[in-house]
Design a protein around this nucleic acid. Structure first.
Lengths: 144, 144
DNA sequence: TTTATTGCAAAACCTTTGCATGTAT
DNA sequence: ATACATGCAAAGGTTTTGCAATAAA
């Protein structure tokens, strides 16, 4: 197995043994054109590319990646979980409820107001989730 | 069956037949001390009060109440759905990840920025969800 | 060699659904 | 009388887990 790719290094840094399932899943996220992928989509994609893997392994690896800070897990309303690469820049999401497309945005004003609110409510904020649901431009056109 | 309570009227207005399960569930929400309740909690509470009901009925009634605008359904991260009375005033949530306590807040500034973002991204916004996760004051004290 | 990882199948969980029975109108 | 609501049990979909076999270190 190649020992020198950045994927290999990333796994080692996370304290995870370098195995084919882990490498393949990590590289899928590194090269995927859609950033937000479900466990089932990961599984199907690998199977379709003739990479043998079990769905249990997919879930276990995804969970380990989240714990290692490699991935983020999101639970959008009424959907299964989706995972995306943790690229360091926090952001929130816009979700098209018709086609499922996800866009990202960041508002430093909103971030600051949230911190203020948590402080006012005496909450030690650990995380937050903001999702705007709607119909994207393309889908609006499609609807007669 | 009493025909004159506001619960009865609310069910009739929603186009729903006035049945014992529906009345009991509605009144549970009207009188509950915690605003955010799961289907299972509704079921257990009724059973504990010697009201015979099936879990399937609980889910069906909750869904109907959401469709009728009587309840709101929320899917917080990594949890089962919870329902709360729709009291007309939109609000977002603060959730204590230790004790599960939910508080509500509203920031008109955030609301406006969200509308601006949706507009800029050319999304026809239908809904949005903002949850701040953290540790509440009481739980902070508890942790040594 | 030792310890972690995998795959399979089964279980766990939450939620929904088919169907025969029962109930509100 | 009729259409709707209920309860049960079974099925659905997603995610987790036990365990024996396997692979990385």
């Amino acid at each position: 197995m190649d020992k020198n790719t950045s994927s290999t290094t990333e796994l080692k840094n996370a304290g995870l043994k370098v195995t084919i399932p882990r490498l393949k899943i990590l590289e899928l996220f590194l090269h995927a054109e859609t950033r937000h992928v479900s466990a089932d989509e990961v599984y199907r994609t690998l199977i379709d590319n003739d990479i043998e893997i079990g769905i249990a392994t997919v879930y276990r690896v995804l969970t380990q990646f989240v714990e290692a800070g490699i991935l983020l897990r999101h639970n959008f309303d009424n959907e299964h979980s989706v995972y995306e690469l943790e690229h360091g820049n926090h952001h929130d999401h816009l979700l098209c409820t018709k086609c499922g497309k996800v866009e990202e945005f960041l508002s430093e004003e909103i971030e600051q107001i949230q911190r203020d609110i948590a402080k006012a409510k005496q909450f030690d904020m650990t995380d937050h989730t903001l999702v705007i649901y709607g119909i994207c431009k393309q889908c609006c056109k499609t609807i007669k």
